[in-house]
Nucleic acid binder design. Structure first.
Length: 425
RNA sequence: GGAGAGGUGGCCGAGUGGUCGAAGGCGCAGCACUGGAAAUGCUGUAUAGGGGCAACUCUAUCGAGGGUUCGAAUCCCUCCCUCUCCGCCA
């Protein structure tokens, strides 16, 4: 959420910054609401101060023995009542304005960071670097073909269990998924990340706090009876882990690594990536998350990205780093690096991690602050996938495929999987 | 699902309708004492919004929302949440 003060005092800045995202917003109405709200608040508190004064005086008079029914006292009571009525009217108006203001503010995305490259859509994203040598070859299979040959997962039968876009991992496939999760968590834990296993049902406040609500309700599965949602990413419960808290500066940064299944409705993606593990309603992910002092968030962004990259490097999976342009940024992000892994079978780079700096955007929505000499200050949050597990499996399968039909696993994974390759059973 | 108890500051815990943003304690910070520390003493220590360069000041907040009153942490109503026991259950 953006700062109300900014809306009030410098809406042009917001308009031009959101313009960099390709949005056209007119904030004059919102600014007016914000200013009116502030005016009302001022009037109201002055009246309340007067009312408080009268209340105290009446108390004094009665305490000193005045007759409560004396005309002097009755007069003041009368005044108190008038003030109360006026306050009630102002308060009502003020509440309505505040509600409208907040409602609208919640729908505005974060401002892009100053050095975020300008651009309209993903074609303007900028490649920052590459790692590894992509494996190439004409007869390389795509991961679902390998999965089918080695009986690693069930697509058709999963429709029977749930519906399309769900997968059932079986045998060595299930084992590989588990190996990947454990490997990732161990790697991050060794770097000082605290391991978290969060609830995967989250309430509306949590989704609002990280930015999924109110705008993206159709993206998440909802349990209507209970005001709970299936979490679309562990970013949601992790943000709310410290919602409404003041974190002592010396405890920052807090760094978490959370494994969780993630659930997405994928509304509007009919026909895209219908085969295999790339786009599912349910997938596993290990998420990295930082709560950081605002002065250190830039360095943190480089670090969280490096920590996500470390997983790919350890798994010997070639990838490139893409910096998203202003037009392709997610709702809560001010700056994002996507990691795209090379899929030799698909002969393409596919997004496998998204590492975003969110500034104070989520912190303001979630009221997460740190203590300063005087008062408090919103902290900054960062998140990054470390990594999306299903897509990692796809990359491992395609990268390690051998001509005999087996898949050679990266060395780092061997202790977790128990064997150095997947063979037909 | 059934029965009961309870929601007050970072935590514990008091609070008779009137100077209560809230005693006391713990914790934390600063100072004093000390060779250094412990112990002790003193002082300070909520959040949000508004005004002021600042010192400071105004308003709101004792789970939430209503109500009674000149005045509510305290009285009334509604809702929410947490805990305990029983039942069911991995």
């Amino acid at each position: 959420m953006l700062d109300q003060r900014l809306v009030r005092e410098n809406p042009d800045l917001i308009t031009s910054e959101l313009g960099r995202r390709g949005m056209t917003v007119d904030l004059t109405g919102l600014q007016l609401i914000a200013q009116q709200q502030r005016n009302l608040e001022e009037q109201r508190s002055k009246l309340q101060a007067e009312g408080n004064r009268i209340g105290k005086e009446v108390g004094q008079l009665i305490k000193n023995g005045s007759d409560p029914k004396a005309s002097e006292v009755a007069e003041m009571r009368q005044q108190g009542n008038i003030i109360k009525q006026k306050v009630a009217v102002l308060e009502d108006e003020e509440k309505q304005l505040s509600a409208r203001l907040r409602e609208q503010l919640l729908t505005l995305p974060n401002l892009p960071s100053p050095d975020c490259p300008e651009g309209r859509d993903e074609s303007d994203n900028q490649e920052r670097r590459r790692w590894g040598t992509p494996r190439e070859g004409e007869d390389l299979l795509e991961h679902w073909e390998i999965g089918e040959q080695l009986s690693l997962f069930e697509t058709e039968r999963s429709v029977r269990i749930a519906q399309s876009r769900f997968v059932t991992l079986t045998g060595q496939g299930a084992r590989l998924e588990r190996a990947l999760i454990n490997f990732m968590l161990d790697l991050h834990s060794a770097k000082g990340y605290k391991e978290i296993m969060p609830p995967v049902l989250v309430n509306s406040a949590s989704l609002t706090g990280s930015g999924q609500l109110p705008k993206f309700a159709e993206e998440s599965f909802r349990c209507a009876e209970d005001d709970l949602w299936l979490t679309p990413t562990a970013e949601v419960p992790l943000t709310s882990l410290h919602r409404d808290e003041i974190i002592p500066a010396e405890q920052l940064p807090l760094r978490y690594a959370a494994y969780s299944p993630c659930f997405r409705r994928e509304a509007g993606s009919y026909g895209r990536d219908t085969r295999g593990l790339i786009r599912l309603h349910q997938f596993n992910k290990v998420e990295l998350y930082w709560f950081v002092h605002p002065d250190h968030s830039q360095a943190a962004h480089a670090q969280i990205t490096a920590d996500a990259e470390a997983v790919l490097q350890s798994l010997e999976l070639p990838y490139r780093v893409i910096e998203l342009c202003t037009g392709d940024l997610g709702f809560s992000a001010s700056c994002t690096y996507d990691l795209e892994v090379w899929l030799p079978g698909a002969k393409a780079f596919r997004e496998i991690s998204s590492c975003s700096a969110c500034g104070d955007f989520q912190a303001r929505r979630s009221a997460i602050r740190t203590k300063e000499r005087k008062g408090t200050r919103l902290i900054h949050t960062l998140n990054g996938s470390g990594l999306a597990v299903g897509r990692t499996m796809a990359a491992v399968l395609e990268t390690g495929q051998q001509s005999d039909g087996s898949v050679l696993l990266p060395k780092a994974l061997v202790p977790y999987f128990g064997k150095d390759r997947i063979q037909p059973e």
